[in-house]
Amino acid sequence: MKYVDQTLVHKRMNSRVLKNNILKQVFLIATLFGLAVLAILIFRVVTQGIAWIDWNFLTGKLSTFPEKAGIMGAILGTSYLMLIVIPVTLIIGVGTAIYMELYAKKGKLQSFIATNISNLAGVPSIVYGLLGLTIFVRVMDFGNVVLAGGLTLSLLVLPIVIVAAQEAIRAVPGHLSEASYGMGATKWQTVKKIILPAALPGIITGAILAVSRAIGETAPLTVLGIPAFLLPFPEGIFDTFTALPMQIYYWTLDASLVDEYAYLAAATIIVLLVLLFILNAIAVIIRNKFQQRY
């Protein structure tokens, strides 16, 4: 007596294998769909904008005539923003990570801070904009200047730096710090001279990723009330400013009136994407170069 009907199995086997093979292709197409959109997006932006990028565009001031407009003000504004974001996030981010990984006692306070950080990472960026508007622009009365924008963006990307720094510190092997203690070094000496230098590549990679997130952020800046049309270049952190994403935003809005503004927006997007690409390439190089040194 046979429990398994071989003919039935053979009959069904083909359709099961066929289904598997078909769906495999469907899954592949789904994966490629995202990449196809990415390709269209980049192709579209480059074909629209590349002709508008010239020396005058990169170094010129804004203008009411699209063909004369330049984005130097936005480039400077973005650079000044990063001058604030980089040191602020590095100091607070690395400090928090050191505390969480090396000093905090495992307990309620530590897990409270950890939960808090992961919740902050999920807060929409526009809410950070309102926080910046209320605290930095209104209460501290900075006005809509580089400092207010920079601090707002710093708070926004802080969780990224903290988590990256925590992971980098955790990855430093324990025998290194044990050797340091064995030589009679104190805790802070060990942190300063052994753990931090060893964790540095990871920290820098995280910081670069955070900075590239901050460079592209638009929503918090729109809330701060950045002027749409600003001729003078910012000269310090207490000046009003515009930034690359803000410029893209305003030009995209104007594109419904005059087509040329869409091309200006596309040209600015190319500049922004090139900048992000360079930053990410640096992060990848650092990660690969220093990976698994121990």
């Binding site: 990415l38 590239s212 893209i248 935003y249 995209t252 997007i269 922004l272 994407l273 992000l276």
Partner: peptide
């Protein structure tokens, strides 16, 4: 990694 403003433009 592409900024959302770029998606908005797109």
């Amino acid at each position: 990694g592409i900024p959302t403003i770029v998606y908005g433009f797109f």
